[in-house]
Nucleic acid binder design. Sequence first.
DNA 1: TATTTTAATTAACCACCGTTCAATTAAAAG
DNA 2: CTTTTAATTGAACGGTGGTTAATTAAAATA
Lengths: 189, 189
Amino acid sequence: MTPRKPAGQELTREMIIDVARKQFLEKSFQEVSMRVIATELACSHGAIYYHFKNKASLFYAVVEEYFAELDTLLANTLKEEGEPDTKLIHIFLCLMRFGLNNQSQYEYMFVMRNEEVNSLSQEAASKSYAKFAQAVHPLCRESIMLSDIYSVFMALHGFIVHHLHHSKNFDEVKEIAFLHAQFLMKAIR
Amino acid sequence: MTPRKPAGQELTREMIIDVARKQFLEKSFQEVSMRVIATELACSHGAIYYHFKNKASLFYAVVEEYFAELDTLLANTLKEEGEPDTKLIHIFLCLMRFGLNNQSQYEYMFVMRNEEVNSLSQEAASKSYAKFAQAVHPLCRESIMLSDIYSVFMALHGFIVHHLHHSKNFDEVKEIAFLHAQFLMKAIR
DNA sequence: TATTTTAATTAACCACCGTTCAATTAAAAG
DNA sequence: CTTTTAATTGAACGGTGGTTAATTAAAATA
């Protein structure tokens, strides 16, 4: 019995999130357990509850980061120089690349539905879409309908979801990803 | 102890599937349990194992029906008279209607990934896509690329997945569904 | 009617889980 | 050198679950 870890070996929020992140990458929300996370942290499962209210809030701490990551990626792509058409295709590919190189993340962000967690990540997903729309809109001609941008987003979403777990990573599908992006350009040009 | 039901009250495969179907409609695969199914059937949970090898095979018996249903719907839509353009839009709407009026079904058919079950339903999903492509292809101009049909399918898929659980039924989104269909027509015409 | 087959029951096995909380003790504060 | 406080433990609570196997009664067959 060692009811308190020696200085410098204390459990931190970050350590827990790190292990949880790894677990959620490999397994579904239901399959990940607080007890296994604790085992990998070499601490007791009770200790986690000192840092997180419950499993859902730990989960959300992990997913929050993913939304931030995607935001950064999209922002960087936007900063690049180039023709509007090229930039649009880059944005489309950026989203598909993120989805397929971060499959579990994408699933948690945009596919998973779970009552325990959803009010939180649902909102984050909406914001993420809004940023996508704001990025895409100025690159289209004035007359474009908002619903078209919405359609583009869903078409990209569909591409990603369809290939989830079915393909290993973006590289495996980059050719069809490019074709898909061109297909979408035909619709908005 | 009544180790066997009297004649005419025996448990059948169909009775089990009926209850299981209802359960899988309301809950996820993990959340549905053989024991609860048995309770609703007023039989013991052991009895189910006389008719089904395990939970996965019972689940697949349920999902199998869904693929058949979708096949029928698409086939009927194809039979209708009309211009190719109208027919195409009808097919697109048919798929979106099916997905959003049968949300859990769609999720099990095309979204869920689960090692216990997947080799089976993965194949059924591929066949389902093949039928869609065969239906769409003759309605497009000769020069259309196969990848475009693939893109259309994924775009529809994305629309459905995006609205899963988020909308109650197809009626709630039929206007945007129609816009989405028109968006896709722009890309293939 | 006697026997066999079939379909059901129940207990049991084994495994898992999230969460709470009194008890404990190391580190920090005084 | 005390006291306080913060972090940690592990038992306990109250469940959940899939699957197996011995057992038995009803139905089918001979």
